[in-house]
């Protein structure tokens, strides 16, 4: 039996919020980093800043990124606060990393 038939035939109330099953897509990737501003988001676990700083340097030297800037989440187990997200929106691309 198809799901839609089960829902119709048994008058089922879907237990889900439709956004649970929405396909979440990754942000569109820039094809070239030349001159772009790249944000680096450290989740504050051990060594995330080390990894990101190294990647940031590589993006500038090898791929011509215009500039990079490192940001930290206040607490790794909680979502980034709004003001941090709006600050990151000013960048052309953002790289994040989990340390450990």
């Amino acid at each position: 039996m198809r799901l839609e038939d089960a829902i119709r035939d048994f008058q089922l109330v879907p237990p889900i919020d439709p956004r649970v099953t929405e396909q979440r897509r990754m942000a569109e990737r820039p094809t070239d980093l030349a001159g772009l501003r790249v944000g680096l988001l450290d989740n504050r676990k051990a060594n995330a800043n080390v990894l990101l700083t190294s990647i940031g340097g590589g993006l500038e030297e090898r791929y011509g990124a215009g500039s990079t800037a490192l940001f930290e989440k206040p607490v790794f187990s909680r979502p980034s606060p709004e003001h941090l997200l709006s600050e990151l929106e000013r960048f052309d691309a953002v790289v994040t990393a989990l340390g450990d």
Partner: peptide
């Protein structure tokens, strides 16, 4: 059987 099939769909 219909109920079983609906369950399988869920």
């Amino acid at each position: 059987d219909d109920a079983e099939a609906a369950h399988e769909a869920l």
